[in-house]
Design a protein around this nucleic acid. Structure first.
Lengths: 225, 225
DNA sequence: CATGTCGCTGAGAGGGCGCTGAGAGCCGTT
DNA sequence: AACGGCTCTCAGCGCCCTCTCAGCGACATG
């Protein structure tokens, strides 16, 4: 069982890491939200232990970003008793369980096992918009039954649009979710990648799935064009 | 915090009522849609828990009626897992959140708190005026079920009018809110854009939603013309 | 009916936004 | 070292949106 632990307090992290290893888990530890986000997006874990108070990107944001990106790994949050965020917030954000610091190590292991057994929150199996389908698990995109090959960036953009299909999303929103929360380049990249998607998705099929909402952003047609 | 619960299963209703009371809510329970509609219209609540399957008037209709009457209290819907209405429907109808039965009581409390915190009565999910609807999140405008495409300026103007529907708003007020507080051009722009809206919203449908109040300003008919 | 005011309308200039093609930088592969 | 794929930048272009303006019509006064 693979566990990702996102925790900035080095001593605590090391103690827990050892304990979990002894309990049979394969543990990876990162020390800030940014690394946590990256690791959780890039690799596959059975469960994530996420501290709320983190440098750079806080646990709050990490979880939000993960769900946005379609990462449905169960998350157990660590909250400080007197912290600015309380238990309610952890659940609000879609955390699957939480523990208040200081916590018993035995309880942590028990909760992790429970989370793994129970599985993640209900995740959408495939995203659909008209004759356009995207399977996050297999990372496959099809239009009208024919597979379309996308680069990672193109895929990320399309997945984001499909998770918000029908909504108008601004270029800045897209940049923050598909590129990087700290991206500060030219929003024109989005236009360029929208074009790439259109060339691959729309042009060969004579239909337009991605609409431009001038002055606002883009919108994926729920009916697939 | 005042909660109205519309739920016909007596035992479930009683259990939840007790729990919410313990959690510090003031709870009122009614057992059918008709009573729910009446209570929600007559009294003021911070949030409404609304079952979909109800005797007499179903939750579906109750919500529709409430929004029609201008009651924008946040609503959390309870849906049966295998019911004829699914999650999509709940959101489509303007529900602010939903839970599938059976649900965790802790999650219910968390969601209610989240709703109360984030959604005030002044921020409806969808703006409605007769057969005219505007969805700020999706940036979508419909009249009589048909989508109408608006430019950013037109959209901003219509949103302002809809948020003040029934009120007469002066051109200066409009300029300050929709254009720029420091705008110093000719108020005639407003007339021009009112015209654009009428061409797109009224002309094709043979009805007049936006009235001119000579010497005063404009007024959006609450009944949509 | 005459007059002035207010709102409506059609046309048009200007600018901003999004689209596009080309290419540079980077990385992994051969 | 050479190549190809991916990402991102850049600058030019075209169109749509925005706003102005002037003439006209409608409505409230005397």
């Amino acid at each position: 069982m693979r566990v990702l632990m996102v925790e900035d307090e080095e001593r605590l992290a090391e103690t827990v890491r050892r304990g979990l290893s002894d309990a049979g888990f394969v543990v990876e530890v990162v020390h800030n939200g940014e690394d946590g986000l990256w690791a959780a997006s890039e690799h596959s874990y059975d469960v994530i232990v996420l501290d709320i108070m983190l440098p750079r990107v806080n646990g709050y944001k990490v979880l939000e970003q993960l769900r946005e990106r379609g990462v449905w790994t169960p998350v157990l949050m660590l909250t400080a008793k007197d912290g600015e965020y309380d238990q309610t917030d952890a659940f609000d954000l879609g955390a699957d369980d939480y523990l208040t610091k200081p916590f018993s190590f035995l309880v942590l292991v028990a909760r992790l096992r429970a989370l793994i057994r129970r599985g993640g929150p209900e995740r959408p199996v495939v995203l659909v918009a008209g004759d356009l389908t995207l399977d996050p698990a297999r990372r496959r995109v099809e239009r009208a039954g024919r597979e379309v090959t996308l680069t990672p960036r193109e895929y990320g953009l399309l997945e984001f649009l499909m998770r918000h299909r029908g909504d108008t999303v601004s270029k800045v929103e897209i940049l923050e979710s598909v590129w990087d929360p700290a991206f500060d380049g030219d929003p024109n990249v989005v236009e360029v990648y929208i074009r790439y998607l259109r060339l691959k998705l729309d042009a060969p099929f004579g239909r337009r799935a991605i609409e431009t909402v001038r002055g606002m952003g883009y919108r994926l047609d729920p009916d697939g064009g």
